[in-house]
Amino acid sequence: MGWIGESVDSIKSLQIRQVLTQAVSLGMIVTSALIIWKALMCITGSESPVVVVLSGSMEPGFKRGDILFLHMSKDPIRAGEIVVFNVDGREIPIVHRVIKVHERQDTGEVDVLTKGDNNYGDDRLLYAHGQLWLQRHHIMGRAVGFLPYVGWVTIIMTEKPIIKYILIGALGLLVITSKD
């Protein structure tokens, strides 16, 4: 029982300098994470350089909870590449493989058809109503690298927000109470 009182005492007896130091170090952690994210955005040219696979449509290559690293270069899109695309009217981007490409001679515009490796048919059912092809602007990036399992952290946190709050609370408490 006593430890609650002790903790309260410890918080009370914090000196202003320590509080400031902790605030600064907390700020450093947050900003450095932001810096890394923004730097990745600049390097990869993709608006979200790291994505988590949410569905099993690319199994056994990518499972739910795997992390993909995206890259968006000026290179033309070719068949076989795994691209992440947004469909109008759908919030969550999809990671699938390109199976057909038609690139226009005069304008260089591309028509792309995708399919999940684990799906039976192509993605025309997933596209907006009446949409037959994806264009360049639908595509957010192509997958270049792969890290298994790590994405489970975010999946769990989105699906069970209580865990997120507990984690944030615990980390916050740790930062506040830890000295030197």
């Binding site: 068949a79 199976i99 038609h102 690139e103």
Partner: peptide, 20 residues
């Protein structure tokens, strides 16, 4: 390894056609 066979050709309209 994911392997696929694509037909690739050029037409007067399209500089690249790839069909898996």
């Amino acid at each position: 390894v994911f392997v696929f066979l694509a037909a690739e050709y050029e037409t007067h309209q399209n500089s690249v056609n790839q069909i898996s």
